[in-house]
């Protein structure tokens, strides 16, 4: 289906990972307006192009990391190099 370049585990089948979705910035709970929360909760750009998204390596390193993928062609771009330590505490 899709080989996902996990920076810790190397290329792995997409079924070994969870697609968390398009990366969005979480608003500050103490200042965010309801509209900002709605945007964060529901709205995504959903482009048919290069997009930064979050994956979770469910059956490997169990880390979250960001990758750039083209949603029209399913290619990855500039993946973090293997051995680059990613994830860990958010």
């Amino acid at each position: 289906m899709l080989l996902v370049p996990c920076p810790n585990c190397g290329p792995r089948n997409a079924s070994d990972l969870r697609h968390v979705g398009e990366s969005t910035a979480r608003p500050d709970p103490s200042t965010a307006s309801p509209e900002e929360w709605r945007t964060y909760l529901y709205l995504r750009d959903n482009v048919a192009d290069w997009n930064v998204e979050t994956w979770y390596c469910t059956r490997g390193c169990r880390k979250y990391f960001k990758l750039e993928r083209n949603t029209a062609t399913n290619e990855f771009r500039n993946p973090p190099l293997p051995g680059t330590k990613v994830g860990g505490k958010a």
Binding site: L2, A14, R18, H19, T71, A72, N74
Partner: peptide
């Protein structure tokens, strides 16, 4: 649906 968002209509072996 496939487990990740995309605009690609190719079939897959997993399916």
């Amino acid at each position: 649906v496939d487990p990740f968002t995309n605009y690609n209509v190719r079939g897959s072996l997993e399916f």
